[in-house]
Computed example of a mutant assay.
Amino acid sequence: MRKRLRVAAYAVCVRDGQVLLARWLNDGRPRWTLPGGGMEHGEDPYDTVLREVAEETGYRVEVTGLLGVRSVRFPSRRRFRRPVDQHHVGLMYETRVTGGDLRFEVGGSTDMAAWHDLDAVPALTRVPMVDFGLRLWRERPVAGRPEE
């Protein structure tokens, strides 16, 4: 089976009881996600999160801490329906907005960004990473991942 590793960096940006999310477009099923995305070759994950937040939301942010890491493996089918063992590693950074204006990404993997009340997040159509990132933000586990 072919193996594929993807390393990415994501922002957990909470202010005034709201979290900043981007709407990810995947196979015609939009879902809310944390702003962020895959590292480019040779890029530092710290720089990745700054770049991705700017691309997807229009905001400039500063990193205020590393919350933890999300490591997920799952099988999938890729080109020509060949099985692939996917391994996604996402670094979760706490961030705060320092400038810029909220705007939507054009021609990318997301089509809009918005602030959502923390209490309203459970009702959103979202990817599991949103809950994982918010759990890290709330619990601040020393190991960088929530206890099972």
Rank of each mutant, 00 (worst) to 15 (best):
E94W: 09
Y59E: 01
R79C: 13
H41Y: 14
G133D: 08
F80V: 06
R126C: 05
T64G: 07
V89K: 06
R126W: 04
L136H: 00
E43G: 14
R82N: 11
V63Q: 12
G108P: 04
A143G: 01
D119P: 00
L67V: 03
V97Q: 05
A143L: 06
R73F: 12
R77Q: 15
H41P: 13
T95Y: 07
F74C: 13
A54D: 05
Q86N: 15
H88T: 10
F104N: 09
R126E: 02
G42H: 12
V84K: 10
R73N: 13
R96M: 10
V127Q: 08
R135H: 02
L50D: 00
V130N: 04
V121S: 09
L34W: 08
P128K: 06
L102C: 03
R77F: 15
Y46S: 13
D101H: 04
R82K: 15
L50T: 02
S76V: 15
D44N: 10
A123G: 05
E56P: 07
E43I: 13
R77T: 15
M112T: 14
M129S: 08
R60S: 07
A114R: 14
F74N: 15
T48G: 04
T33Q: 14
V63A: 13
F80M: 09
W137E: 01
H116V: 10
L91D: 00
T98K: 08
A54N: 03
G42K: 10
L136W: 01
D119G: 04
E40G: 13
D117Q: 12
A113N: 02
A123F: 11
R73V: 14
